[in-house]
C-alpha cells in the first residue's frame, strides 16, 4: 500500500483535490481510501461517502491535530491494509503552523489556495517546506501574474518540490496529481519511522489544565512576547 500525507490550511481545497485525484486513480483500477484528521468536526466524510471512497475520521478535540496524527497513523495504515487498499491518503487540517504530518519515506503533499494571496507561501510553516508536491488550487479565479508569483514564492521556500496547479472543481490538473501519487513510495515502514520535522516538546502549566492567569500560575516552558519599553 502507498501512503500519501496531504496537509494545507482550512478551505484550501484539500478535500476537492483528494476526491478528484482519487477518482482518477480509481478509474485506473486502484483501490483507494482516506483518513480525515480534524480538530472539532468535519463534513468531509460525507463528501468522500458521496463518491464511495472509504473514509475514516479522527477528531483531535483538545489535542494538537498533528500530535494526534502521529499517535494514530500506524493504526490508520493498518486499517487501510485490512481493506486491501492500494493507496491511502491522509487529510489534515493544517491548523498547527509549527507541526507537519509529513513522514520520511512517504509522499508528502501540501495544498495552498492561490486566492489566499501571494504572501501565503511565506506564512505557511513546515507542512509546505517539507512537502514533495505542492498543489495550488483556485488558480481559475486569479490572474496569471499572481499564479506565477505564487509559484515563485513557493519555490523560494521549497525549491525541491514539484509544483502543480489543480482546479479542485473541474479537476483540471488532477490527472497529473494522480500520476505522481501513483508512483509514490510503496510499502514504507511506519514503525520506527521519522517525521520530516520535529514537533515541539514545550509543555507549560496551561497544557496541563491550568486556567488561572498570572505569573504565579505559569510553570514549565514559558515564553514572553518581547515588548519594547
Amino acid at each position: 500500500m502507498r501512503l500519501v500525507t496531504v496537509a494545507g490550511p482550512p478551505s484550501s481545497g484539500k478535500t476537492s483535490l483528494i476526491v478528484r485525484t482519487l477518482l482518477a486513480l480509481r478509474d485506473d483500477g486502484l483501490r483507494v481510501g482516506v483518513v480525515k484528521f480534524d480538530c472539532l468536526s468535519t463534513q468531509d466524510a460525507a463528501v468522500f461517502d458521496r463518491h464511495d471512497i472509504p473514509a475514516l475520521v479522527g477528531i483531535s478535540s483538545g489535542f494538537c491535530p498533528d500530535h494526534y496524527f502521529i499517535s494514530n497513523i500506524e493504526d490508520c495504515a493498518a486499517w487501510g491494509e485490512r481493506l486491501g487498499l492500494d493507496l491511502l491518503v491522509t487529510e489534515s487540517a493544517g491548523l498547527c503552523n509549527r507541526c507537519a504530518p509529513h513522514i520520511r519515506g512517504f509522499l508528502a503533499v501540501c495544498v495552498l489556495d492561490a486566492l489566499s494571496g501571494v504572501n501565503t507561501p511565506r506564512k505557511v510553516g513546515p507542512m509546505l517546506k517539507t512537502a514533495d508536491l505542492v498543489v495550488i488550487t483556485k488558480g481559475d479565479i486569479v490572474s496569471q501574474a499572481e499564479r506565477e508569483v505564487f509559484a515563485f514564492r513557493v519555490r523560494q521556500v521549497n525549491p525541491r518540490a514539484r509544483i502543480l496547479f489543480v482546479n479542485g472543481i473541474t479537476g483540471q490538473g488532477a490527472w497529473e496529481a494522480a500520476r505522481i501519487w501513483r508512483s509514490a513510495p510503496e510499502d514504507g515502514v511506519l514503525q520506527g519511522g521519522r517525521l520530516r520535522f520535529s514537533v515541539p516538546t514545550a509543555v507549560c502549566s496551561y497544557c496541563l489544565g491550568e486556567t488561572r492567569i498570572g505569573s504565579d500560575h505559569q510553570h514549565g516552558t514559558v515564553r514572553k512576547i518581547p515588548i519594547p519599553s
Binding site: G117, S143, Q144, E146, R155, I163, R179
Partner: peptide, 27 residues
C-alpha cells in the same frame, strides 16, 4: 514532472486580480 513545468499562461473571464497593490508595484 519536475518543478513547475507548465507551458501555458491562461487568461479567462473568471480571473481577477486579488492583490491590493498599485499597478506599478504589482508589475
Amino acid at each position: 514532472f519536475s518543478g513547475e513545468s507548465g507551458l501555458v499562461a491562461q487568461i479567462s473571464q473568471n480571473m481577477n486580480f486579488v492583490i491590493d497593490l498599485p499597478v506599478g508595484e504589482f508589475l
